[in-house]
Design a protein around this nucleic acid. Structure first.
Lengths: 223, 223
DNA sequence: CGCCCATATGAGACTTGTCATATATTGGAT
DNA sequence: ATCCAATATATGACAAGTCTCATATGGGCG
């Protein structure tokens, strides 16, 4: 869906090859949008067919010719229209939550182990984002800096404005906030599990009974 | 991928028809996993082919026969194995962040309008989750309560344990935390945008120059 | 010599989403 | 009385999107 538009977005900054795009994706929007190389190339092909992009082939010494993709006017129009359109509700899809939801089948020890693993992984991802934020070179700078044209014509690589920086930083911050929230949640859940587990079996049975009150008794996870 | 496993998870609670499953999905894991009816039926077909599930047809007066899907032993084994397996890194995919990232092309007023819309939508979703949490009837209870069998044999609908409740509640809480984080972030961004916009044009230009220092000047969004 | 970088393309499997449709019964509206 | 709507139940077909894997070229570098 919006892979196309992300591509258009980058091309609005400056003309790029599929190869460039792949790198920029990984380097700047990688936290919230992953793009496979094949996908990018296919998107470019389609966009070209649809007339939103046109290709200029720039021969090079030694390397394969750059197939530079430039935005056309309709491409720019399409991008702006999309940017204006309020995004529909995005489909949520969290396999890990499914695991948690049904984790009652496992012995508690295994569940806490899974949580710990998840905590570690989340902390790691958070570290990565924090590191990027700390060096504070917005991905935009990387894009503006690299003179891919070789022609000396840096006209297309405009310097990012304060607004652009703010927005780019904000997307990073968004990732950080979500990861932080996730981490907090994981730790709280971890604690709750421990508390539940710490209560000796007899009390736990009483709890179960109190809570379900009047129904048949449940097998229980005491294994 | 894990639609299959979510289905297995529900079937481990009690045997269900595709129709039941659809309702349970919507009612309990709907916040973090959306499932289309056709998808569920397709998953059931596959699971049956793979021998993880077997169907018992229960004729009914007046209604179409219930095709009850029961977990087989290998089904249970598969479910447990999956629950134990640490989830791989999930692909992030946030169209809205893409919009934000490139929103610099729009006049600031439009961007803030988009943000406001997003704030409203997020608050709404948050309200829904909070309401569910407040009535505190875990989705599990709904599943246990409904006597779908009609046979009077309530044996399969086991009462959820304290652990099960904790986990179900936790997944809800997870959604709430993330939405809250999102909301905070949106508001902060909103404020930052206002601040930037509030600075008179001359100062803003100075800011831009200070920040980019030595490069060509950027067109700017003063429209 | 062999591997990596820059650059690009293709085939095929699989997942998802969307839409349409079928049947039988109960319960309300006209 | 009759008809429509809703409920409970289930399928089929197809478009669109994604992922994965494989492959090709030609120069630079260790």
């Amino acid at each position: 869906m919006s892979l196309r538009h992300a591509v258009l977005g980058f091309l609005s900054l400056k003309p790029l090859t599929g190869y460039d795009l792949k790198k920029y994706f990984d380097g700047s929007v990688g936290h919230f949008w992953n793009a496979d190389q094949a996908q990018i190339y296919r998107a470019l092909t389609q966009l070209t067919e649809d007339g939103l992009v046109h290709v200029r082939v720039v021969p090079q010494e030694g390397r394969p010719a750059r197939r530079e993709h430039h935005l056309t006017d309709s491409g720019r129009a399409e991008l702006d229209a999309w940017l204006r359109a309020p995004a529909g509700p995005q489909a949520v899809r969290e396999p890990f939550m499914v695991q948690v939801f049904f984790a009652g089948r496992l012995p508690v020890a295994e569940t806490t182990a899974l949580l710990d693993a998840r905590i570690a992984a989340t902390r790691e991802r958070l570290g990565v984002l924090r590191a990027i934020a700390a060096q504070s070179a917005t991905a935009l700078d990387a894009i503006a800096d690299t003179d891919t044209t070789g022609t000396g014509t840096t006209a297309s690589g405009a310097v990012p404005s304060a607004l652009d920086r703010l927005l780019a930083t904000a997307t990073l911050e968004n990732g950080i906030r979500h990861l932080t929230a996730e981490l907090d949640w994981l730790r709280d859940l971890r604690t709750d599990l421990d508390d539940l587990h710490a209560a000796p079996a007899r009390i736990r049975r009483r709890l179960d009974r109190a809570v379900s009150d009047g129904h048949a008794h449940h097998p229980g996870q005491d294994a």
